[in-house]
Computed example of a mutant assay.
Amino acid sequence: MSFTAEDVAEIETDLIVEAVWRRYGYDFRDYSRPSLQRRLERAQSHFDCGSLSELQHRLLHDVGTLPALLGFMTIQVSEFFRDPYYYARLRTDVLPHLATWPSIKVWIAGCANGEEFYSLAILFREEGLENRTIFYCTDINPSALEKAEAGIYDLDRLAGFTRNYQAAGGRASLSDYYTAAFGAARFDPSLRKRAVFADHNLASDSVFSEVQFVSSRNVLIYFERALQDRALDIFARSLPVGGFLGLGSKETLHFSRCAGLFTDFATHEKIYRRNAVPADEARDAR
């Protein structure tokens, strides 16, 4: 039986994913394999390893390899007010519903470097809901969480952030929310006063709190179907009836086993609302 280079790379990918899980407890086993393999190949080059097997050996025997490797295995690419019409719709149609709760909990699942969190924090401040909202910002990458909590971004990204903010219906100037110096922009630390940054893994962890709004954008697209269903089930169990779920522009829950637990609220913006369903139907959906 002959193996191609692609066959060998696939085996090596499986082995390094298993090593990450068994050695460190990070579960990437149900992540999309083609995307994960491309990211591991970039990691192989970064670590100057001749093969993924060599990278696996380094990972197993040098714990210092893990933090940088997680940076390759997780996706940290985002921007402020990404897909601005999503945020515009939150402003006009979702936040008025959230305002009916005496206190609000928001979960940003897969917060990456924090761009989505700061976008929501600014939005909630401008709509007068900041002081009764708690933001749970979670990710599996400790380095990303540190960057998110720091709130510092390259200054050359601010022009794009500003255009998005304006298109999302911003009520002020984005520059009101940051100070610039030495080629970087530091966002107002007061935006973080209602935020909790914490590790949470959608592949292995469970529900940790009831929240009224889950925003998890461009996370599910990197999961295989089984893990997508698991994540959506966690979101559904975190939300009360009438709570909201926001997904990325290329994501949907329509083909998920959890689809019956939600109704479309803003179809184009991929915003859904938690259903009231009979208990037996909810069990079947899960």
Rank of each mutant, 00 (worst) to 15 (best):
N141L: 15
L202A: 11
R23Y: 15
L155T: 09
E224K: 08
L245P: 03
G114L: 02
S32E: 10
P67Q: 01
D139N: 09
S2D: 15
C258H: 00
S32Y: 10
L247M: 04
E281T: 08
E146M: 06
G243K: 01
E115R: 10
L36D: 01
D284L: 04
L66G: 11
L36F: 07
K270M: 09
Y26I: 08
K147Y: 15
D229K: 03
N164V: 06
A121Y: 12
E12C: 12
R273T: 04
R89H: 06
L123I: 10
Y272L: 08
I108K: 02
T263M: 03
E54T: 14
A266M: 02
A148C: 08
S249V: 07
P34M: 09
A68F: 12
L40A: 11
Y86H: 08
Q44P: 05
F117M: 13
T138C: 02
A68R: 08
R42W: 10
S204A: 12
E79Q: 09
T4L: 14
F197R: 05
A9E: 13
R132G: 07
L227Q: 07
L253N: 04
D176V: 05
G170F: 00
A19D: 14
F208L: 08
V94T: 02
R273S: 01
F124I: 09
A236R: 13
F235Q: 05
N275T: 00
I152M: 14
S249L: 06
L40H: 04
S190P: 08
S256P: 03
W101C: 04
R274Y: 01
L145R: 07
E130F: 13
T263F: 01
I140L: 15
E210R: 02
C49F: 09
D83E: 07
D48I: 12
L90H: 04
A167R: 04
R42G: 03
G151M: 12
F187N: 00
I152D: 08
Y24T: 07
A88G: 09
A109D: 03
G246W: 04
F161C: 14
T13Q: 15
F223S: 13
V211P: 07
R171P: 05
S206C: 08
T133A: 00
G248R: 00
E130T: 02
N113D: 15
R89S: 05
R132F: 01
F47C: 10
L70F: 10
A172G: 13
I134C: 10
A276R: 01
P142W: 03
R163D: 15
A43F: 13
D264V: 03
L202I: 14
A112I: 05
A236K: 10
L120K: 06
H61A: 07
R274M: 02
L40E: 10
T65F: 03
E210A: 02
L253Y: 00
Y118H: 04
K147L: 15
S51R: 15
L232S: 06
R286G: 04
L90F: 11
N275A: 02
